[in-house]
Design a binder for these strands. Structure first.
Lengths: 238, 238
DNA sequence: CTTGGAAAGATTGTATACAATATAGCAGAG
DNA sequence: CTCTGCTATATTGTATACAATCTTTCCAAG
């Protein structure tokens, strides 16, 4: 029997899905907005067929909600939703850190070290646009966390984390605004890194959990401030 | 704006997905077999369009693998895959049990009690067909575990557990064959139940983890026996 | 002025047709 | 006899057409 491809999935209207996902995460199609298939098809330059598949997939991932005969809506997150997700994230990433402590390779450690250093340096750098800065920070942060998941050596854990972390950036970007929070975040990164170097899984888990709960609290704080602002007369759905 | 439906998803070719899922879990279309769209369409009495969507969804859930331009295959699980899944299941269900200890309602406890009792009684009952027995046991067991997930009060946790537990029954059914293992399993159920009644989250988690690891070990043992049998000249893919 | 209901419009759900791609089988050269 | 390349077949991927369903609008009755 001829060998089937080893790769999971790639190329073609899988790209439609990737683009849709990106659009959702980056905040075009804001939470709560309707996702009319024809419109998406035109935006992405394809027919409705691949769009539909992408929507089904995004729904399975929790990024959109599909109401039968009524269409898809970019998922909106209540505060309770965010609490649930962060709770699971702490559980899963904490576990990932625990596992990683016993298996991480020097190469992976180096990658994490580089990401942590980049985040620290960025405090003293200036960027052309605020957007660029946020993008850079989000990316380096993703490298740090994804490397841990990778080092844990559990493919399904990686998949689950990708699902959980796929919350629209909109909700997370403010996180990177203030210097104080970034410094604390950097401190957590260093603590986690140290624990991993020492092979101390318990400590790595504990620090990772605290790191994530800290992020959650910052998010909720700003979320509350935002909803207060909205309550005073600001609208975001056309 | 008129209120959108609260229900998540139901009715229509969502049913195609449910049926496909069932077929996969129950072992028609055994692991590794090709899932040709047209054939599935005929089997289910619809066109390829809804079948394709169901396949995409099943792929997102990990039940099938889709190879671009080459079609879908009922996912086959290596021993490592099973280890990964049980590791996560212990983590997630353990956490669910921990959370449930603080929030479970008398009604939910009663449901679990009934399921546990049904599993105990079944040891002394006779069924018309072995199949019926396995079906009954799997169902009661599902009630027990799903109620805990429900009591944990985290919707996303429920979703994730559904994904993890969706391993083809084929792999799990043997689990119910021997009386000794069933007795031990029942004992774990009672231990978990007690911990929940007492509101002791730590113990509930610990017992749940052991329960799941025990199931894993039984599974792996029989899996190894089975693969030894296959090695001696038995084929299952036409 | 509000409410009920029917018709028009918009959008989703499914089937089918066709294009793109991979697989298998066969022929011919080495 | 084996290996390479070409053609035929099977299957997937996408677009489009039409049916089913929901939403909105408008008008009449209360």
């Amino acid at each position: 029997m001829s060998r089937l491809y080893t790769s999971d999935e790639s190329s073609s209207a899988d790209q439609v899905y990737q683009r849709l996902r990106r659009l959702l995460i980056e905040g075009h199609y804001p939470p709560g907005s309707r996702l009319v298939e024809e419109r998406l098809a035109q935006d992405l330059g394809v027919s409705r067929t691949p769009v539909r598949q992408a929507l089904v997939r995004a729904a399975a991932e929790g990024l959109v909600q599909i109401f039968p005969n009524r269409g898809a809506v970019a998922r909106s997150f209540t505060i309770d939703d965010l609490l649930e997700m962060y709770d699971l994230r702490a559980l899963l990433e904490g576990h990932a850190a625990y596992l990683a402590a016993q298996r991480i390779t020097p190469d992976q450690l180096a990658r994490m070290e580089a990401a942590a250093a980049a985040l620290e340096d960025s405090l003293h750098r200036t960027f052309a646009r605020r957007e660029d800065e946020v993008h850079f920070l989000v990316e380096q942060n993703a490298v740090f966390h994804q490397t841990i998941a990778e080092a844990a050596g559990n493919q399904r854990l990686i998949t689950m984390l990708n699902q959980i972390v796929a919350v629209p950036l909109q909700f997370r970007s403010f996180y990177w605004y203030r210097a104080e929070e970034r410094q604390i975040s950097n401190f957590f990164h260093r603590s986690i890194l140290n624990a991993l170097i020492l092979g101390d899984g318990d400590r790595a888990r504990a620090m990772m959990r605290e790191h994530i709960f800290y992020g959650r609290d910052v998010l909720l704080q700003s979320r509350r401030a935002e909803s207060a602002a909205v309550a005073s007369g600001e609208e975001n759905v056309p």
